[in-house]
């Protein structure tokens, strides 16, 4: 099997390498990919949209449909993970830690729940005590990571950034909370329902912006027609439309990343995990 795979891989690689001999050189400004539509994007984007970042302009304006369904793909992946893994059956037995003495209690009666607070703390079966240094550093860092994520989303059309990137950074800050403390801390602060609503809300903002353009008498996702809604910004209206769409993408990506993480590490039970 290994030998067969090696032969297949070598043959495919040899064919591909033979094909690359006719490819354009590294950094060739006249390569076929840079001749046709990309020149239009570079030369006319600022005139058309007033967005300095070409990539964002192309992603959310010229290729807006593509990105809308991309957000739908993300949403579908989140829903798919939820439907595959989510397990609503509660755990049969619970572990608690008596905090003053450090004694670990194993409660086998599933109806008997101890109050969580100063006296008793949650406990996982494969529990590792959270390191004080890790916890402190993460607690200090997480707000800054989140502010940076918001900056990346808000600056999507001015500097490198955008909804996907900012959303992933925000989602990773929530995942960091789950890693440095434990999964229960995250699930208590960010409810599953909220994540589901956010994932759907992001797609809704994107599609809703497109539908709003339809209502204002333009084509779907034709942000230029939104000008009467925001008076005084008619020059920058397409960049503002992009910003709204990017916020929708960011919300959806953030929610779905966290949802996928929580479902996978806890096998859908949302109680204990990494």
């Amino acid at each position: 099997m290994r030998l067969l795979a090696f032969i297949i891989v070598t043959l495919t690689g040899a064919f591909l390498l033979y094909g690359t001999t006719e490819f354009p050189d590294w950094g060739d400004p006249n390569s076929p990919a840079s001749l046709h539509v990309s020149n239009y994007y570079i030369e006319k984007t600022y005139e058309d949209t007033h967005a300095p970042n070409f990539v964002t302009a192309v992603v959310t304006d010229y290729r807006g449909f593509d990105t809308m369904f991309e957000t739908a793909v993300i949403f579908t992946a989140g829903i798919g993970c939820f439907l595959l893994l989510r397990d609503f059956r509660g755990k049969k037995e619970h572990y608690y830690q008596h905090i003053p003495s450090g004694v670990i209690l194993h409660v086998k009666d599933e109806k008997k729940l101890l109050p969580i607070g100063k006296e008793f703390g949650y406990m996982d079966k494969e529990w590792v005590p959270p390191d004080l240094i890790n916890k402190t550093v993460c607690r200090i860092l997480i707000p800054f990571i989140q502010i940076y994520a918001l900056y990346v989303v808000a600056h999507g059309d001015y500097s490198p950034g955008g909804g996907f990137q900012g959303g992933v950074i925000f989602g990773s800050s929530l995942i960091l909370l789950a890693i440095s403390y434990d999964l229960k801390t995250l699930v208590e602060r960010v409810k599953e329902k909220l994540l589901g609503i956010f994932a759907a809300l992001g797609v809704l903002i994107y599609a809703g912006t497109g539908a709003l353009c339809l209502l204002m008498g333009g084509n779907f996702l034709d942000y230029g027609k939104l000008a009467p809604l925001i008076p005084g910004h008619s020059g920058h209206i397409r960049a503002l439309g992009m910003l709204v769409v990017e916020i929708g993408v960011g919300i959806a990506v953030m929610a779905v990343m966290t949802l996928i993480y929580i479902n996978i590490v806890s096998e859908g039970r949302h109680d204990e995990g990494l």
């Binding site: 990309s38 994007y41 070409f54 990539v55 192309v58 992946a77 992933v168």
Partner: peptide, 19 residues
């Protein structure tokens, strides 16, 4: 300026790969 189109296509490809 470098070609923005390929970066855009790959932005969406990264998203699909994550999903």
């Amino acid at each position: 300026y470098i070609n923005p189109l390929t970066s855009c296509l790959m932005l969406t490809a990264i998203v699909v790969s994550v999903a």
